[in-house]
Simulated scan of single mutants.
Amino acid sequence: MKAIVMRRFGGPETLELAEVPRPVPQADEVLIRVHAVTVNRTLDLAVRAGRYGRPVTLPHVLGADPVGEIVEIGDDVVDRKIGDRVATLPFVKAATGSAPPVLLGVSAWGGYAEFVAVPARITHLVPAKLDFADAAVVARHAPLALHLLETKARVCPGETVLVMGASGGLGSVGVQVAKSLGATVIAGAGAPERVARAVAAGADYGIDYRRSDLVQEVMVLTGGRGVDVVFENIGDPDLFPQAVSSLARGGRLVTAGSHGGGKVTLNVTELYQKQLTLYGSTGQTSGDLDRALALAADGLLQAEIADTFPLSSAARAHEDLEEGRITGKIVLLPQHIEVPLSS
């Protein structure tokens, strides 16, 4: 089969289209013909550059969230059949003791390939109403957004949620999930067009935090009270303290990202005087994924796809995302191999 293989860490040029052996599923595994897989800043770009926080063995195939159809099943698999349309969770093996979890596309070969073998237990049926590209985008971010906002922050109807980075992949889903939970949503983003995109995705209000005082604008919108929940997944040293200061007394902040740097200051006096709670989590459950796919099939979550690329153009997809030429989610289509000829 063809796959995008990285044999060293570095820039997009390290990604090469290569012939590799087609995997054979083990007894508890299924073989998926991959139809879509997303491109991610952390789980793809950072891993490729050698900046990810966990060891990666080379040669390696990226791709944390392959979606496709099952073409072969292992001898012990009883709850999946050939032809099933499935999405995947990335957790191939759970963390044990001091050992980190085994993640698809990080510590196990992932979905930048025509086929991938995964444990049957991490696969979830994709509703017939969803196409593969939409399912891949929903499966990548919506389960985590549900876990953070519903399970960790316990957002209730009538509360106000500030979503930071609201036009990004996780942020735009966070806007939609918060709305589905009955919240009033304030979208924070770093440019007017990004604010507009987040409002179009369902946010009630928008703030350009690069041009305006975030805390002041939040207080105006909330009558001086602040927000109940902040969905913060940037980790920017300037923005994070402002996000915390935007919280009302008893407020909660949830986060699962740090692409803005990750080293931030925290006003501990504010933390205890306002009785704030901060949650960091990358957790998501099988139920979160099933619910996310069902919400998308019912039209309550929309997949925001900026562009699609054939498998052979993975390096160009990485370059476009890294250089900021594309804002939003990029999807690779592994069954589309060849680069289209230019006219």
Rank of each mutant, 00 (worst) to 15 (best):
Q273E: 09
L58V: 13
D44Y: 08
V106F: 13
T265C: 10
D320H: 13
V230A: 12
V116A: 04
F240Y: 10
L17K: 02
Y272N: 06
A306S: 02
S342C: 07
L89Q: 05
V155H: 06
Q273K: 02
G261N: 08
L45M: 08
Q216I: 13
L170H: 12
G50A: 01
A120I: 06
L300Q: 14
Y272D: 03
P100V: 07
V138H: 07
V34M: 02
Q176R: 01
G257N: 12
A3W: 03
G280R: 01
I122V: 11
A303D: 11
V227P: 01
G63V: 03
G110Y: 00
F240K: 00
G250P: 09
T42Y: 11
V30Y: 02
Y209V: 08
I122A: 01
R8L: 03
A27Y: 00
Q335V: 12
G251D: 15
G251F: 10
H336M: 04
L45G: 15
R54K: 03
A198L: 01
D236Q: 05
S246F: 02
V67Q: 03
D65E: 04
G63T: 04
A64K: 14
L239R: 06
A120T: 05
K274E: 09
A113F: 13
L247S: 10
G280Y: 03
P192G: 10
K129T: 13
V106T: 12
M1S: 09
D307A: 03
T42Q: 05
I122Q: 04
